[in-house]
């Protein structure tokens, strides 16, 4: 197939940016989107030009690094997949595909399609620790946990921290991410001990990063490559409200990371 990639190029955070067009021929339908970007870069390198900077690592949808807006949709038009799992058969022949970086104040641009997502790391750090017993491998099912809770925790744990929720949200809100992390640990016996301090600290860290607020538009769950339900956001709001009423149990132990 024949396609044209319209890619955002920007040398660094302070340089002006703009779209560059790359017409590509002989693209196989079975290629992944990142493989096409590789081809663009090979050509650029052969021509002695600067390749397009983009984040990628596992290329199988588990690391969450490949952050990009493809034709206005975070991770591209396919549902429930990351950019690296997007295949060219998703696009029509002769289409022009616009590729942009995540746009959020809390995710400052580094170069081209690469943004700095360490804001997420700081939120995770603020979540603190989980109390577990050390020693020998525990017996399976030694700690009873209901199937409902196990399933919900598993759904939340699918979050790979890619940042698509922030990127797609009209407000740049990270609530789906935060709610997945809080929701996972609050449901499991191993995370319950610190649950109230955790949610207070994580929300406090979230507010410091310059993200927007959640207005329940549900864009986040529509683009989430792990299809995490926006209902977790309701659970986060509830958890935060209850934690505020209960107060911070151990002020410093779980605080700050």
């Amino acid at each position: 197939m024949k396609i044209t990639l319209r890619i955002w190029r920007q040398k660094n955070a302070s340089a002006p940016g703009g779209f560059d067009e790359f017409p590509m021929d002989h693209i196989s339908e079975d290629m992944s989107f990142l493989e096409v970007l590789d081809q663009v870069n090979e050509k650029l390198i052969t021509d002695g030009k600067e390749p397009v900077a983009f984040d990628h690592d596992c290329r199988e949808g588990i690391c969450g690094t490949c952050s990009m807006m493809i034709d206005g949709t975070a991770h591209g038009p396919d549902k429930g997949v990351t950019a690296c799992q997007t295949h060219m058969r998703t696009f029509a022949d002769n289409s022009i595909i616009t590729v942009e970086p995540w746009r959020a104040k809390a995710f400052p641009l580094i170069k081209d399609l690469v943004v700095d997502r360490s804001a997420f790391d700081r939120i995770i750090q603020a979540g603190g620790f989980v109390s577990v017993n050390t020693g020998g491998t525990p017996d399976a099912n030694a700690i009873p946990i209901s199937k409902v809770d196990a399933d919900a925790a598993m759904d939340a744990a699918a979050c790979i921290g890619c940042g698509a929720c922030v990127a797609a949200c009209k407000n740049g809100s990270p609530m789906l991410f935060v709610s997945a992390k809080v929701g996972q640990l609050a449901r499991l016996p191993q995370g319950k001990t610190e649950r109230y301090a955790r949610v207070l600290n994580m929300v406090e860290a979230m507010e410091k990063e310059g993200f927007g607020s959640c207005t329940n538009t549900n864009s986040c769950e529509a683009v989430c490559p792990k299809e995490i339900s926006a209902s977790f956001i309701g659970a986060l709001n509830r958890e935060y409200f209850i934690a505020t009423l209960k107060g911070k149990p151990v002020e410093s132990a779980a605080g700050g990371g």
Binding site: G72, T73, T98, R103, A168, K170, N171, G210, S219, A222
Partner: peptide, 19 residues
């Protein structure tokens, strides 16, 4: 919310998927 995205998308209407 307005401050959270100083640089917008090429097509802001489209980027707010399913909203």
């Amino acid at each position: 919310n307005a401050a959270a995205r100083p640089v917008g998308y090429n097509d802001p209407g489209k980027s707010a998927t399913k909203a």
